[in-house]
């Protein structure tokens, strides 16, 4: 158990440090790299919780796809850091004040942590014994039965996101020559070639 406790504190501390660095790094590329570190640590926390499937998904999707995409975007955009930082001093005190107040309140809330009597049993109710059934299988079991509504709805959300990204970015460019294989295959000499007999002394009209 000691090992698990040590692992938790390591992962948790690293996750917080990573999160802070995401915000405080001046270079956006560095921020993204810190974000990746945070994701890894979060995945580690999931493993400790026994949710290895979620941990793997986190690594594959967030680290492998999302974060890398972020990196690309950040690198391509060439953001001018100084401009963004401009004027931040004007708001820093107000921001700190509001943030501080909010933080203090949330701390109050968490220190007076009183769960409802049956909250613990309620929240663990859908979780089967991990020794009987694997994590992935258990998720699959409820995902397509109890949560089929949410699953389908999430699918539609993704569809909308896809439509949206296409609608907002795709444009048909004029003047661009694209390769159309079918056209090339269907091409016949008669379509493009014309045999003419040129009389001597006269050019082509």
């Amino acid at each position: 158990m000691i090992a698990a406790a040590i692992a938790f504190y390591v992962f948790a501390t690293m996750a917080v440090i990573g999160g802070l660095n995401v915000i405080f790094q001046r270079n956006p590329v560095h921020s993204v790299l810190w974000l990746i570190l945070t994701f890894f640590n979060a995945a580690g926390l999931f493993v400790i919780l026994g949710a290895e499937f979620v941990a793997m998904i986190l690594v594959v999707v967030y680290v492998g796809a999302v974060a890398v995409l972020f990196l690309f975007v950040v690198m391509m955009l060439d953001i001018n850091i100084t401009v963004i930082r401009e004027g931040i001093h004007k708001y820093v005190w107000a921001g700190l004040l509001v943030g501080g107040v909010l933080l203090a309140e949330l701390v109050t809330v968490f220190t007076s942590w009183v769960m409802f009597d049956d909250a613990a049993s309620l929240s663990t109710a859908p979780t089967p014994d991990p020794n009987v059934i694997t994590n992935t299988e258990a998720l699959g079991n409820i995902l397509y039965t109890d949560y089929v509504y949410l699953f389908q709805a999430a699918g539609i959300i993704l569809l909308v996101a896809m439509i949206g990204s296409i609608v907002l970015t795709y444009r048909t460019r004029t003047g661009v020559r694209k390769q159309v294989i079918a056209d090339q295959v269907a091409r016949r000499p008669s379509d493009t070639l014309e045999m003419v007999k040129v009389e001597s002394g006269k050019g082509l009209q």
Binding site: V109, F110, W113, V114, F116, D118, L122
Partner: peptide
């Protein structure tokens, strides 16, 4: 986190039986 459920029905019954919970 505090109520252990997300269902409206469950929340209603949890809140009606428990006392005030600042969380």
């Amino acid at each position: 986190g505090f109520a252990g459920t997300t269902s409206f029905v469950g929340l209603a019954s949890a809140l009606s039986s428990a006392q005030e919970n600042v969380g």
